[in-house]
Amino acid sequence: MIGGMTAALSIGEVAGLSGVAATTLRYYEDRGLLRPPERVGGRRRYDESVLIRLRAIEICKASGFGLDEIATLLADETPGRPASRELAAAKLADIDARMAVLAQARALIEWGLRCTCPSLEACTCGVHPPVGSPNPRIVDSVR
């Protein structure tokens, strides 16, 4: 903020501060993910709040949201829209499931690193495979 007013940023400044390319900013604007900025002398002038919105977009993308899904989530600033809530809840469940699988993969890799046997299939060193693999029948058959 500058003097109590929100600073107007050029597209280059937004790109530099956010790490999002100027071409991507224009694309997001065309897709409706970003509101069209004010133009001063024919040049885009963004409000600082665009940086928060860009961060939300990038986090959603990294979490597996498609651009259409992100547009649905960001289409209306009114919290609690049913379609947005259902989409967000489904994505949250998906993220939780992926995190559980990654935690299991991490435990399996740690087990492999701790095991000193020449073969994990014939482990005799006393280090046991992690419980709760994605397919418990496989782990049970190894024990």
Rank of each mutant, 00 (worst) to 15 (best):
S119D: 15
E86Y: 03
A7I: 13
L87I: 06
P36Y: 00
G42N: 09
L25A: 05
N135Q: 08
G66A: 07
S18P: 07
Y28F: 12
I70W: 04
I52W: 05
E38C: 00
I95L: 09
T72S: 03
R106A: 01
P79I: 11
G126F: 06
P82I: 12
D76C: 14
E121Y: 04
G3K: 15
R98A: 05
A56C: 08
C125Y: 02
A7S: 15
A103H: 09
R53K: 08
V40E: 10
A122Y: 06
G4H: 00
I95V: 15
C125Q: 13
I95S: 10
R85Y: 01
V139G: 06
S84Q: 12
A83S: 11
V101P: 00
L34K: 06
S18M: 11
V139N: 06
I11P: 03
V14S: 05
V50T: 05
R53P: 07
P79T: 10
C117R: 08
E48R: 12
I11C: 01
A75H: 11
H128V: 09
M5D: 13
R114Y: 05
D30S: 14
V40N: 08
P130S: 08
A83I: 09
Y46F: 09
C123L: 10
A8N: 11
I52E: 03
A71P: 05
R106G: 06
R55S: 07
R81F: 01
C60N: 01
A88Y: 02
V101W: 01
P36C: 00
I95D: 02
D68L: 08
R43P: 04
S18I: 14
G42R: 15
L74Q: 08
L113T: 08
I138W: 15
Y28R: 00
A83H: 09
L108D: 03
A88Q: 00
T24G: 05
T24D: 10
L33Y: 02
R44M: 07
A83C: 01
P36W: 00
G132I: 10
G42S: 12
V40L: 10
G64N: 07
E29L: 09
M1E: 09
G12L: 14
P129C: 01
C125R: 04
E38W: 01
S119Q: 06
Y28M: 08
V14C: 02
R55Q: 02
I57G: 04
D140F: 03
L54M: 05
R35K: 15
P130W: 01
F65D: 05
S119W: 07
D140L: 08
D76Y: 12
